[in-house]
Amino acid sequence: MTDDVLLRVSGLAKRFGANEVLRGIDLEVRRGERVAILGASGSGKSTFLRCLNFMEMPSAGLIELDGRLLGSERRSGGRTYREAELTGVRQRVGMVFQQFNLFPHMTAIGNVMEGLRTVRGLPKADARFRAERELARVGLADKAAQYPAHLSGGQKQRVAIARALAMDPEMLLFDEPTSALDPELVGEVLGVIRSLAEEGRTMLLVTHELGFAYHVATRVIFLADGAIHESGTPDEVLKHPRQERTRAFLARHKEFSL
């Protein structure tokens, strides 16, 4: 059923100097799947996510998006990626960051419009129309003219999500979207992500919110030492983990209770 597979990763490895952060990861993500990625800090989960839209360049391995193998083989081994191909990938794969990374010198709606205007080349009026729609979708239509400095953390992250959505991505990557938020603001962001999940969007979600992962994800992956240690349905991994390290990790996150 390869028509259904949006993302296929084989043998993904990433080295920073002598430090092997990712040691060969294989993963298939079908359209509409929501994959939660868990792991201790240093397990490589952020690095893995960032390799998928080439914010980090893989040291080895193959990445296939929508059936098309990315990059081309180098005669000396490994792969080489053209910048044009990578910007193309990033237009189709949206990313939401832990630190929001909103552009402080633009208003909320300016932020959401930026990709459409500069990358897609849409005229200002069309970009604004679409941006207003996305801001409304995350519940911030009334904050369109505000600058990020005047928004709460939760609002900033929702604008960031709207900014990613404006590009109409086929897949969304969430890199610990609520880890930098005060606890009372986490809910509004999770609410938006949940509604996106209910729309059937394909997403990969690195998170510490285990309860949320349990309810929203279709598959859970536990990363340790740069490799997939355990993988399965939320029920399998979160409620009946088979591996010892998974159990130890879950035990440390005791606030998770079903």
């Binding site: 914010m55 910007t87 990033r90 552009f103 010198h105 500069t118």
Partner: peptide
Amino acid sequence: PGQWDGARALGMRWGQIMRRIVLPQAIK
């Protein structure tokens, strides 16, 4: 660097990032 990340993730090229995101903030 987060500004570069945010802009790159949208698919912006180096020149666009400089022109639209980095230099406007740096000038101030």
